[in-house]
Amino acid sequence: MGRVTERRRVIRIRDGAVSTRPDTLVAEEPMEIRLGGKPLAITMRTPGDDFALAAGFLVSEGVLASAAELANIVYCAGATGEGGSNTYNVVDVRLADGVPVPDITLERNVYTTSSCGLCGKASLDAVRTTARWPLDTSPDTPVRIEPATLSALPDRLRAAQRVFERTGGLHAAALFTTDGELLDIREDVGRHNAVDKIVGRALQQGRLPLSSCVLMVSGRASFELVQKAVMAGIPVLAAVSAPSSLAVDLAVETGLTLVGFLRGTSMNVYAGEHRLTLSAAASTD
């Protein structure tokens, strides 16, 4: 669709010298997600991978868990702009026959997925009880990762951000193996959208749950991102910045390994340290 970036004229000032030049900006447009023809949510996103975004969003909502539960996703023909052309900003998700359509309204959705509208024990309980694939919290879990492997992920994430290199204005989410192999990366103005695109593509490819993977995100780790990781069965979430207190609470509650401030060889492990191969002499002060 060619709408990932746009060009705008800017005035550039460098060391007192003034010039005009075109600048490349990341595109941002609203997308409405409908379920069975009924409005469900509106998100601001970077166009591209829209069907994966919608599918991943519904995974995080507990609606979808496999490609077999999804009939199709289509752009709504009625979304028209100037001249009657389709804006490609409205998608409708149809579930497969026999899959119940949950009673989700736009008002409920704003409550359950907004990073600023969630709080308290009810939020934690809701994710724990609706997760299709509870995370293995045993100390003997087969998912293990070296801190040195985690340390290499931010650079690998940044190196794979093609649009960021052109715009400097969007987030990324990447899926890695526990050996540090890059499996997929998506970019978006919203880090939650980037994660939904990752998870949605995995659902479309029949790869859920992502029980042997590490999710790496740019920026901070919010409650919403921890929720999305848990709902996709991802055992390890790493971020280059800080988590919120509720994100840590949810990680502890569900058994997710949560790593923040991942910069160089330094990192903070907030939950799920049993999946990291730490030195026996590590201090617990």
Score class of each variant (00 low, 15 high):
residue 18 V to A: 03
residue 22 P to H: 12
residue 193 N to F: 04
residue 96 A to E: 12
residue 256 L to N: 06
residue 37 G to E: 14
residue 231 M to D: 06
residue 250 L to P: 01
residue 213 C to N: 14
residue 235 P to K: 04
residue 42 I to S: 13
residue 40 L to A: 05
residue 83 G to H: 04
residue 251 A to E: 08
residue 134 P to L: 11
residue 188 D to W: 05
residue 50 D to I: 03
residue 11 I to E: 15
residue 115 S to N: 13
residue 267 M to S: 09
residue 10 V to Y: 09
residue 23 D to A: 14
residue 16 G to H: 09
residue 265 T to Q: 12
residue 25 L to S: 08
residue 31 M to I: 14
residue 159 A to G: 13
residue 146 E to C: 09
residue 226 V to N: 01
residue 63 V to H: 05
residue 34 R to Y: 01
residue 259 V to M: 01
residue 146 E to A: 14
residue 96 A to M: 07
residue 73 I to T: 00
residue 206 G to N: 11
residue 37 G to Y: 14
residue 103 D to V: 10
residue 243 P to G: 03
residue 258 L to T: 05
residue 229 A to E: 12
residue 56 G to C: 08
residue 188 D to R: 02
residue 272 G to W: 00
residue 266 S to P: 02
residue 95 L to G: 05
residue 68 A to R: 11
residue 41 A to P: 09
residue 71 A to V: 07
residue 175 L to Q: 06
residue 34 R to F: 01
residue 265 T to W: 07
residue 68 A to S: 10
residue 80 T to K: 13
residue 134 P to N: 12
residue 183 L to F: 06
residue 116 C to I: 13
residue 177 T to F: 05
residue 45 R to D: 09
residue 25 L to T: 10
residue 59 V to R: 02
residue 147 P to C: 07
residue 150 L to F: 04
residue 279 S to D: 14
residue 266 S to E: 13
residue 235 P to W: 02
residue 250 L to G: 02
residue 37 G to M: 13
residue 73 I to M: 05
residue 247 A to S: 03
residue 202 A to M: 03
residue 51 F to N: 00
residue 99 V to N: 03
residue 200 G to A: 04
residue 193 N to Y: 02
residue 7 R to F: 13
residue 63 V to E: 10
residue 65 A to N: 13
residue 226 V to T: 09
residue 285 D to W: 09
residue 169 G to I: 01
residue 152 A to S: 15
residue 222 S to E: 13
residue 51 F to M: 07
residue 264 G to L: 08
residue 79 A to G: 11
residue 219 G to P: 14
residue 18 V to I: 15
residue 158 R to P: 00
residue 13 I to A: 02
residue 204 Q to K: 06
residue 114 S to L: 04
residue 125 D to N: 11
residue 27 A to N: 13
residue 228 K to P: 00
residue 246 L to A: 08
residue 170 L to A: 08
residue 96 A to L: 08
residue 209 P to E: 05
residue 182 L to S: 10
residue 50 D to V: 03
residue 116 C to T: 15
residue 86 N to W: 01
residue 92 D to K: 02
residue 146 E to V: 01
residue 15 D to F: 01
residue 57 F to C: 03
residue 125 D to W: 00
residue 282 A to P: 01
residue 200 G to L: 04
residue 253 E to G: 01
residue 29 E to K: 06
residue 192 H to G: 11
residue 196 D to G: 00
residue 29 E to I: 02
